[in-house]
């Protein structure tokens, strides 16, 4: 068993790397979810120009490879704008989040379209506004369709975070590279297979945590659809007895 483990200081490096990875993942996820909703709803707007912008967004960010996007956002733009102090962590998350938004928007659009028209018509008959219809009727039901593919998408983003090591961020992958160099040039004699095995396990565990969180969300949502118990006369308010 001992042979499979790294040294304590190496784990410290990987732990710091994991923290960076999680920060990027978190920021990219929040941005990605917001963009997915805004752009996905925008794709179905009554206004042509809104639909147009949303479509261009989707096509651009799905078409471009995340690594090119990352270089543009994290390196080219700061140079062009002359902002050398820009946080690479922020910019990296921005690139990944924008990327997620491109795919997520299509999932959101598809799921909204899958909700039966009768749901919207009942909302109009009850005189809900367009926003209320979306918020209280359509999206909660669409969420049931959105959650599973969004879980996969989030894991894609987790994998995508490894790319940020290429623009100089000390995430897990970058920490791994660093340890590898220590191994090559120093006297740390650990095997590189063991190193990669450890990194693999860390990514795997993170992915499983994401999976678990999404399962939990799906389960909680499903509970809303399955409803509660019959009320006995004792449960009823005074007025209806």
């Amino acid at each position: 068993m001992d042979g499979l483990l790294l040294e304590a200081n190496q784990y410290r490096l990987l732990r710091d790397g994991a923290w960076v990875t999680l920060q990027i993942l978190g920021l990219a996820f929040v941005l990605g979810v917001v963009l997915s909703l805004v752009v996905g709803v925008g794709r179905l707007s009554e206004r042509r120009w809104v639909r147009g912008i949303a479509l261009v967004y989707v096509e651009f960010f799905r078409g471009i490879s995340s690594i090119v996007l990352l270089f543009i956002v994290a390196i080219a733009i700061p140079i062009l704008l002359g902002v050398s102090q820009a946080s690479i962590l922020m910019l990296g998350s921005l690139a990944l989040g924008a990327n997620m938004g491109g795919y997520g928007a299509e999932i959101v659009r598809g799921s909204i379209q899958a909700i039966p028209k009768g749901q919207s018509e009942a909302s109009i008959a009850l005189n809900l506004s367009n926003t209320q219809r979306l918020r209280y009727v359509v999206l909660p039901q669409a969420l049931r369709i959105i959650l599973p593919p969004f879980g996969n998408l989030t894991i894609e983003i987790l994998k995508g975070t490894a790319l940020v090591s290429l623009v100089g961020l000390a995430d897990i992958t970058q920490a791994g590279n660093f340890i590898r160099q220590q191994q090559l040039f120093g006297d740390a004699g650990t095997d590189r297979t063991i190193l990669f095995l450890n990194i693999l396990v860390i990514y795997f565990v993170l992915a499983q945590i994401i999976n678990g969180l999404f399962r939990l969300a799906e389960w909680r949502l499903e509970k809303r659809f399955s409803g509660g118990e019959h009320l006995t006369p004792l449960d009823l308010p005074e007025a209806t007895k």
Binding site: G118, Q141, L221
Partner: peptide, 29 residues
């Protein structure tokens, strides 16, 4: 807001209880 409609296929909101279905418009609208 003066008009109400009941549909052939009910069109109840499946993610809400009977009570929530009824309360939605009075509260939100």
């Amino acid at each position: 807001s003066d008009i109400g409609m009941v549909f052939q296929h009910f069109n109840l909101f499946p993610h809400m209880t009977a009570l929530e279905n009824i309360m939605l418009a009075p509260v939100k609208v």
